[in-house]
Design a protein around this nucleic acid. Structure first.
Lengths: 256, 256
DNA sequence: TTATACACCGTACACCGTACGTCGTACAAA
DNA sequence: TTTGTACGACGTACGGTGTACGGTGTATAA
């Protein structure tokens, strides 16, 4: 396994998989397939949602659908392509409510929150989804189309709309990745943020000289006290989304 | 190996390592150590910089310093702690120029660019560095202190300063992760972005109906044409940094 | 009826992190 | 000076990963 990242497979082969190659349904020689690609992908999705990305092994997926490890390779060329299919399927299944006459800030808030919901439901997506060379399947395209529509009367140029959407989604992904990391830290170590701070503080207190690190000690403890840890998901979301929309507002107000 | 992420080790043990346990230099029984922890960490850093995070295996690090795989464990409790040390060492070695009387926007730009330089020189950092539970070593603290100082007369509250810095660094990390992904995509597949688009476009053209995806086709091709790929690092940086600073400006101007 | 393409599977390989036990060394105590 | 012992280094081994390869039985095409 080189990498758990999208876009590792051979392009044309992957695209054929994503858009459902016509030969798939056609009858072929040999014994009938005991599964569909969808069943394989769904099994992998369930596994990832329940136990995280590391739980996705070809053997585990095979077990889940009741075939041997190597049989999975008759449905999917390899693990990277399986991940591509998982990503595109997730995107395809997102709910897309219409943008009926809302102001742009409300629409972009919805875009952000919908993506946060998605990445909360499927935390492994934050580790897999890449901006360059995404799996150009029907799910990715439908998502892209719908989110572009949220910028419809902002007065931005086409290039700026693309950049703005990418920027907004980048914030969401970055935030959710941090939230996911934080959540996993507590479960992995069986230690809450408060416990972790309590365990570290005494040792740290001896090393942290307020004369050498005056701001770090003051601001760090102020922030830690305010939110009970070094990083608080909800606060970071509220703060970050407001800043991100303010940043885009500067651009959009100029354009209109 | 559960995860390549910071903060997996036992806190007190890790902190002792980071701040240089006093017993380290003291003479002990038994044969003399043939290496120092610094040598081990430097070897791992060189390996990661040259060949990426996946090249960091205990065997490879051991090879590099000329001992057997298991001997590394006499210097470091395990791989997570080694990664902690690598991160803190990188931070410790950053250059920190003074903030002499520059306006805040210039200072924050420098913070962002310095971090981008760091993450460009050590791309693997984007995969390892976490916001929650960072390795609280001298490097992390010195970096935190120095970057907090860039907010010195912005009029923001302590809590907002911490949130703003985290937000800014989040943008940089998110951007650099994308840039790193994009760069690795070209080297891994031995295929430039242009090649990839050329390989995908004909297959995609048959699937992409402009009636179903009008905006995606129009804006996607406009963006692709303007930058030669789905994502262009320099453009995204310029656009994103401007938006991020504009977003913070809304907060800072309110405060002052 | 025969030839062939294909689904499926078992085995094997090269990696990974690291637990464990052995061995020789060099300091501390006698 | 001798001896006990703490400790650095190492070889081996275990359970995990993705997947290449070859064998086997089946269902369609000729």
């Amino acid at each position: 396994m080189t990498q758990n990242r999208t876009g590792s497979g051979e392009p044309s082969r992957t695209l054929a998989l994503l858009w459902g190659e016509p030969s798939e349904t056609a009858r072929r020689k040999g014994p009938a397939r005991s599964l569909t690609i969808t069943q394989v992908v769904d099994a992998a999705l369930a596994l990832a949602d329940e136990q995280g990305l590391t739980a996705i092994t070809m053997r585990a997926v095979a077990d889940r659908v009741g075939v041997s490890a190597m049989s999975v390779y008759t449905y999917v060329p390899g693990k990277p392509e399986l991940l591509d299919l998982m990503v595109d399927t997730c995107y395809a299944r997102m709910t897309r409510s219409p943008w009926a006459g809302q102001p742009w800030r409300e629409r972009l808030t919805t875009v952000a929150e919908t993506n946060r919901d998605l990445l909360t439901a499927h935390p492994w997506l934050t580790e897999v989804a890449a901006l360059s060379r995404p799996p150009l399947g029907p799910g990715v395209m439908a998502k892209y189309e719908h989110e572009l529509a949220a910028f419809d009367d902002t007065g931005l140029s086409d290039v700026d709309i693309d950049a703005a959407l990418t920027y907004l989604l980048g914030f969401v992904q970055s935030h959710c990745r941090s939230a996911h990391d934080a959540a996993r830290a507590t479960t992995d170590t069986a230690m809450s943020d408060a416990d972790w701070w309590a365990a570290n503080l005494p040792v740290l207190a001896r090393a942290l000289d307020p004369h050498i690190y005056p701001r770090a000690v003051r601001i760090g403890s102020a922030a830690g006290e305010a939110q009970g840890s070094a990083w608080h998901a909800d606060r970071a979301w509220t703060f970050g989304l407001a800043r991100t929309l303010d940043g885009l507002a500067a651009l959009i107000d100029d354009a209109s």
